[in-house]
């Protein structure tokens, strides 16, 4: 209440039914998960929590989550056939009912096994409408919505690193809309999450990757 709503807050999104939170939101979560690893995905395990576990199947939550991992958007009619498409592409998938603790009722944890042998995890919730919130990446706390292009850097918790990253963005005229730094503990590693108004260009990404101390950079394209 209180906020002004625009025409397209009311009409749309165009989406595959039946539920904005359990289907469209689920597809968005999957699409974010599809972007965190390097190279093709070999196997994905979905740990379903709360309402995602109990009423998910009737809403096609499982199909939508997998479709997102395959890279489909929430309005893609292939959502319905995601199981078959994953099988054709040789991607294994399993669903588990889990208690992820004190989290939003519509929460899923993705465990992604990549073809190169690496393992990535991501936890996110469908928080109402088709809005989502990512809360965990590779076992560490993060927070972003997927509405904006999102840059996530992992580096030691020490002075100057944040400035060197944002200086590159400033030079490339990329405006930062929201920014948060999550450190595991003082002086240890930390994750910086930058939600930007425009997509970070590839040359900026390469420069950031080359910075001292930067251990990993992930760029996540927005999912709408």
């Amino acid at each position: 209440m209180g906020k002004h709503f625009g025409a397209f807050d009311i009409l749309g999104p165009v989406m595959i039914g039946p539920s904005s939170s359990h289907t469209a939101g689920a597809a968005k979560l999957g699409k974010i998960a599809s972007q965190i690893g390097i190279g093709p995905i070999q196997k994905v395990t979905f740990q379903l929590h709360g309402s995602f576990a109990t009423t998910g199947r009737g809403h096609g939550t499982d199909k939508a989550l997998l479709a997102g991992v395959l890279g489909f958007t929430p309005d893609d009619e292939r959502l319905k056939q995601s199981f078959e498409i994953a099988q054709e592409r040789g991607i294994q998938f399993t669903f588990e009912e889990t208690d992820l603790g004190d989290v939003h009722p519509n929460t899923v944890r993705f465990i992604l096994e990549m073809e190169n042998g690496t393992l990535n995890t991501l936890t996110g919730s469908s928080i109402g409408g088709s809005n989502i919130l990512i809360t965990e990446l590779d076992g560490e706390e993060v927070e972003f919505t997927g509405v904006y292009p999102t840059l996530i850097t992992r580096h030691p918790d020490r002075p100057g690193i944040i400035t060197s990253v944002t200086a590159i963005l400033a030079r490339m005229k990329v405006n930062v809309a929201f920014m948060k730094v999550f450190r595991i503990s003082r002086g240890e590693m930390s994750n910086m999450v930058l939600e930007t108004d425009s997509l970070v260009p590839p040359e900026a990404l390469r420069e950031i990757e080359k910075l001292d101390y930067i251990e990993r950079v992930i760029l996540i394209h927005p999912v709408i």
Binding site: I10, L11, G12, P13, V14, M15, I16, G17, P18, S19, S20, T23, A24, G60, K63, D75, E77, L79, K80, G129
Partner: peptide, 21 residues
Amino acid sequence: EVNSAMGRIAAAPTAGSCGIL
């Protein structure tokens, strides 16, 4: 029916009420 069959709809204002408008 399209909505509950995992077909494409426009939320108006929600998916559950997408048939009326």
